[in-house]
Amino acid sequence: PEDEKKAKEALKRANGDEDKAKEILRKLGVDPDRAEELLRRLR
């Protein structure tokens, strides 16, 4: 869904750096736990 698209985009923008991607997602208003879960799934 929408969050998943955001997560993929964030990872791309962060050049695969998960911590940076998490930060980006947090700024986009995605719940930190949700962000973590999404990134884990994309790994």
Rank of each mutant, 00 (worst) to 15 (best):
34 R>A: 11
39 L>K: 00
12 K>G: 07
5 K>F: 11
23 E>H: 06
20 K>S: 07
8 K>Q: 09
11 L>Y: 05
2 E>L: 10
5 K>L: 13
4 E>C: 07
11 L>N: 02
32 P>A: 13
2 E>F: 09
10 A>K: 01
11 L>W: 07
15 N>W: 09
5 K>V: 12
25 L>D: 00
12 K>F: 08
43 R>E: 13
42 L>D: 03
20 K>L: 13
16 G>Q: 04
32 P>Y: 10
15 N>Y: 09
36 E>W: 03
11 L>A: 02
25 L>A: 01
2 E>P: 10
19 D>W: 09
39 L>G: 00
42 L>T: 04
28 L>M: 15
34 R>F: 10
4 E>P: 03
19 D>Y: 10
43 R>A: 13
4 E>F: 15
11 L>F: 06
8 K>E: 09
16 G>W: 09
27 K>G: 13
24 I>M: 08
12 K>V: 12
42 L>I: 13
30 V>R: 00
18 E>D: 06
35 A>T: 04
25 L>C: 04
25 L>M: 07
13 R>A: 15
43 R>W: 03
35 A>L: 08
14 A>D: 01
32 P>V: 09
31 D>R: 06
16 G>Y: 11
28 L>R: 04
8 K>A: 10
42 L>K: 02
20 K>T: 09
21 A>R: 00
4 E>W: 15
16 G>A: 03
29 G>D: 04
7 A>Q: 02
41 R>Q: 15
7 A>W: 04
1 P>H: 13
1 P>R: 13
41 R>I: 08
35 A>S: 06
41 R>F: 07
7 A>L: 08
10 A>G: 01
1 P>S: 15
18 E>S: 08
18 E>M: 15
25 L>I: 02
35 A>F: 09
14 A>E: 03
2 E>R: 07
34 R>K: 14
25 L>N: 00
35 A>Y: 07
35 A>H: 03
25 L>R: 00
33 D>E: 14
30 V>M: 15
21 A>V: 04
34 R>G: 04
35 A>C: 07
12 K>I: 13
19 D>A: 14
40 R>E: 15
37 E>W: 02
1 P>A: 14
31 D>K: 08
31 D>G: 08
28 L>E: 11
22 K>V: 08
13 R>N: 11
8 K>W: 10
25 L>T: 00
20 K>F: 10
13 R>I: 14
15 N>P: 01
11 L>K: 03
42 L>W: 03
39 L>M: 07
34 R>Q: 10
13 R>H: 11
31 D>I: 04
11 L>Q: 02
20 K>D: 06
42 L>E: 05
13 R>Q: 15
16 G>V: 01
5 K>A: 13
16 G>L: 04
19 D>Q: 13
19 D>N: 13
24 I>Y: 08
36 E>P: 00
11 L>P: 01
5 K>D: 11
20 K>G: 07
40 R>T: 09
10 A>H: 02
5 K>G: 08
42 L>Y: 04
21 A>S: 02
3 D>T: 06
3 D>V: 08
3 D>Y: 08
26 R>Q: 14
39 L>S: 00
22 K>H: 06
14 A>T: 07
37 E>K: 05
24 I>A: 05
2 E>M: 10
35 A>I: 15
11 L>I: 08
16 G>P: 01
34 R>S: 09
41 R>N: 14
29 G>P: 00
13 R>C: 10
29 G>T: 00
30 V>S: 01
30 V>N: 01
13 R>P: 01
30 V>Y: 15
1 P>M: 14
34 R>C: 09
22 K>L: 14
39 L>D: 02
25 L>W: 00
6 K>H: 11
42 L>C: 03
24 I>F: 07
38 L>G: 01
41 R>Y: 08
13 R>Y: 10
13 R>W: 12
14 A>M: 05
40 R>M: 08
43 R>F: 06
2 E>I: 10
2 E>S: 12
25 L>V: 00
5 K>S: 09
27 K>P: 01
24 I>T: 04
19 D>E: 15
9 E>N: 08
7 A>F: 05
43 R>L: 15
43 R>N: 11
4 E>K: 08
13 R>M: 15
12 K>C: 09
20 K>M: 13
25 L>E: 00
37 E>R: 04
41 R>P: 02
29 G>L: 04
30 V>W: 13
33 D>M: 12
14 A>S: 09
22 K>E: 03
21 A>H: 00
9 E>W: 06
41 R>E: 14
22 K>I: 11
6 K>Y: 12
31 D>W: 04
2 E>G: 11
21 A>D: 00
43 R>Q: 14
9 E>Y: 05
39 L>Y: 01
21 A>C: 03
37 E>L: 04
40 R>P: 04
18 E>G: 07
38 L>F: 04
7 A>D: 01
14 A>I: 02
30 V>K: 01
23 E>Y: 02
43 R>D: 10
9 E>I: 10
1 P>G: 13
36 E>M: 05
6 K>T: 11
18 E>V: 14
33 D>L: 12
34 R>P: 02
4 E>G: 06
40 R>A: 14
38 L>P: 00
30 V>I: 15
8 K>I: 14
18 E>H: 15
28 L>A: 11
30 V>G: 01
10 A>E: 02
38 L>T: 03
9 E>F: 03
37 E>Y: 03
21 A>I: 04
30 V>P: 00
13 R>K: 14
13 R>T: 13
15 N>F: 13
21 A>W: 03
14 A>L: 02
32 P>F: 08
29 G>K: 02
3 D>F: 09
32 P>I: 11
2 E>T: 12
17 D>K: 05
5 K>M: 13
20 K>A: 11
37 E>P: 01
17 D>V: 06
22 K>T: 06
35 A>P: 00
33 D>G: 11
17 D>Y: 05
32 P>R: 09
37 E>T: 04
40 R>L: 10
17 D>S: 07
6 K>I: 14
33 D>K: 14
6 K>C: 09
36 E>C: 06
28 L>G: 07
7 A>H: 02
